[in-house]
Design a protein around this nucleic acid. Structure first.
Length: 552
RNA sequence: GGGUCGUUAGCUCAGUCGGUAGAGCAGCGGACUUUUAAUCCGUUGGUCCAGGGUUCGAGUCCCUGACGACCUACCA
């Protein structure tokens, strides 16, 4: 254990009097265990029954049935004592193991010698009980204890079962305490996360995707535009980056003939923290040779609804009261149309200029008009002013006027819930790894000489949150090399998020990559969405926090 | 980075006008063989986040700092 890591102990202030009193009382009780021949941190409890299995077995049995058929049944249960009600010669305790909780019925008559041990049990202690199933007069299924053995002493009191702990800092710094004190809610969120990740794997495995692991220590930055963390390998005297995305490695595997691959893993981005951003987070990426981004939209609907079905089957409560609907089919809206629609609703003054200008390849006029529109906030104008191409401008307009309002603009027929929206066709300028829309399709869909070149790319937004990003992959090595060079140009202009020129990736593509569609999904955000958590810190067990200072 | 708010007993929280710290739960002692936040009687427990200032006197007012939350910005 780390020095000073114990609750209530810091270097400068050893212990408050209260903490030391509460703890010394418990240490004295541990000594009492020793005097009885029990180790305060014993082991080897032997075979056990889980609390959930006992509950399941006797779910429908009434008191008489249990007494008649199970007088000689012996269950062995071990867990943490989380409540005790002492009525004299009868003590009711609540025991919790990893599967659930059950009441212990402890009487002086049935426990004999061991009954006096209860005086030395504190809330939070781990104990082993042997006994038979019974129901109390109130009808609660309980274990009638025939013997009691203490297993582990809890020196530090757990916070009150009733109030839990609410100070968020403690909840994140001491997640173990949070899990105990805020049972079962916090516990269930992380069980939900596990179910969700398992369901993602299940869906992919069922479709013959192969799970792989690619390097997280990279010598070349790539796969996403983001600031990386840097580190160093001593033996090779080599500066390395923690990956910001697995993308380029997974596509190398497509070149190698692994036609369907996926990875669920951690990526690191050296950026700010917020309720939606943690510096390390979990991403799912999959790549499917011979597919296009169109097919991936169907698959995305299937994948997310499959995962949700698995989650809700286990924890129905997470489906209650949602402000969004996952009912298929989901909306598919071209970015251009989303912007037009949004301007129509919120900036009709811009719309006329916009519609004419874009159609006539006059994006420069649009930009000029936008920049002089008095109704625009200064930050919006600054952002638009930084755009140097029509594509960047379109994307900026999307971010400013459409993205934040997706929840309002796309809703169920009764207006009761928001619906998922695929925003389709991203400008080439902001999509360095996506395939350019084929010329004939661009012309067919956007007309001759439209000032923005589009890619075969979509992003999925649910309840206004960006959840997934996918596109038909760029597999032309010359095109890709050109875009890497453009990234280097951005780097020279001070863009710390620009990618490196990845020579080996170009070499891989030069061997020929089949037409492929690729998909990325923020697992933490999916968990937030499906479990209704407002902060990413509520779905990451140990979120990044500043180290505790001595002053605390 | 900017703004707002918060930090008081182990936990959850009060604390009036600046007058020397309160409750419930937990703990400790006692009663109780069917409790469900058990109940009843008694009781211990405080670097009021830290440092400085104003004042006869600061949990309270002022300044600085630490940590956190929210909003905002940056950012996929």
């Amino acid at each position: 254990m780390t020095v000073g890591a114990r609750v209530g102990i810091t270097r400068d202030h050893p212990m408050s009097d209260t903490t030391s009193t509460l703890e010394s009382v418990r240490r004295a009780k541990a000594d009492a265990w020793r005097a009885r021949g029990h180790l305060p941190f014993g082991n080897d409890p032997g075979p056990l029954n889980t609390i959930a299995s006992i509950r399941a077995t006797h779910d429908g049995h009434d008191s008489a049935a249990l007494d008649a058929a199970h007088a000689d049944t012996r269950y062995r249960v071990a867990g943490r004592v989380v409540a005790m009600r002492d009525t004299g010669k009868l003590v009711f305790a609540k025991l919790r193991d990893g599967s659930g909780e059950i009441q212990l019925f402890c009487s002086a008559r049935d426990l004999g010698e061991d009954f006096s041990l209860l005086k030395e049990i504190d809330l939070g202690d781990i104990v082993l009980v042997e006994g038979r199933p019974m129901r109390t007069r109130a009808g609660e299924l309980s274990v009638l204890a025939k013997s009691l053995r203490p297993l582990s002493k809890s020196y530090t009191p757990i916070p009150s079962e009733w109030f839990g702990i609410s100070e968020v800092e403690t909840r994140y710094r001491q997640r173990y305490t949070d899990l105990i004190a805020n049972y079962p809610e916090v516990n269930e969120v992380f069980r939900a996360r596990s179910i969700i990740v398992r369901a993602l794997r299940e869906w992919l495995d069922d479709r013959d995707f192969m799970e792989v692991e690619t390097p997280t220590l990279n010598s070349v930055r790539g796969g996403a535009t983001a600031k990386p963390f840097t580190t160093h390998h001593n033996a090779l005297d080599l500066d390395l980056y923690l990956r910001v995305a697995p993308e380029l490695y997974l596509k190398r595997l497509i070149v190698g003939g692994l036609d369907r691959v996926y990875e669920i893993g951690r990526v690191w981005r050296n950026e700010g923290l917020s309720t939606r951003h943690n510096p390390e987070f979990t991403i799912l990426e999959f790549y499917q040779a011979y597919a296009t981004y169109r097919e991936l939209m169907d698959e995305t609907e299937e994948l997310v609804t499959h995962v949700d079905a698995r989650l809700v089957a286990r924890f129905p409560r997470f489906a209650h009261g949602r402000s969004f609907s996952l009912a298929r089919p989901w909306r598919r809206v071209r970015m251009l149309d989303a912007v037009t629609h949004a301007l129509q609703k919120r900036h009709p003054d811009l719309l006329g200029i916009w519609a004419n200008g874009m159609g006539l390849a006059g994006w420069g006029r649009v930009r000029a008009a936008v920049l002089t529109t008095p109704s625009l906030q200064r930050e919006h104008r600054d952002y638009l002013n930084k755009c140097t191409t029509a594509g960047e401008t379109l994307f900026a307009l999307f971010e400013l006027f459409a993205e934040s309002f997706l929840v309002d603009d796309y809703r169920t027929a009764d207006d009761g819930q928001s619906v998922p929206v695929f925003i389709v066709d991203y400008p080439f300028d902001v999509s360095p790894l996506a395939r350019k829309k084929d010329t004939d399709k661009q012309t067919a869909q956007y007309g001759e000489g439209f000032p923005v070149t589009f890619t075969d790319r979509f992003e999925l937004f649910v309840e206004g949150r960006e959840l997934a990003n996918a596109f038909s992959e760029l597999n032309d090595p010359d095109d890709q090399a050109e875009r890497f060079r453009a990234q280097l140009g951005n780097r020279e202009r001070g863009d710390e998020e620009a990618m490196d020129f990845d020579e080996d990736y170009i070499r891989a593509l030069s061997h020929g990559m089949p037409p492929t569609a690729g998909f990325g999904l923020g697992v933490d955000r999916l968990v937030m969405l499906l479990t209704g958590q407002k902060s990413i810190r509520d779905v990451v067990l140990f979120p990044l926090l500043r180290p505790e200072s001595d002053g605390r």
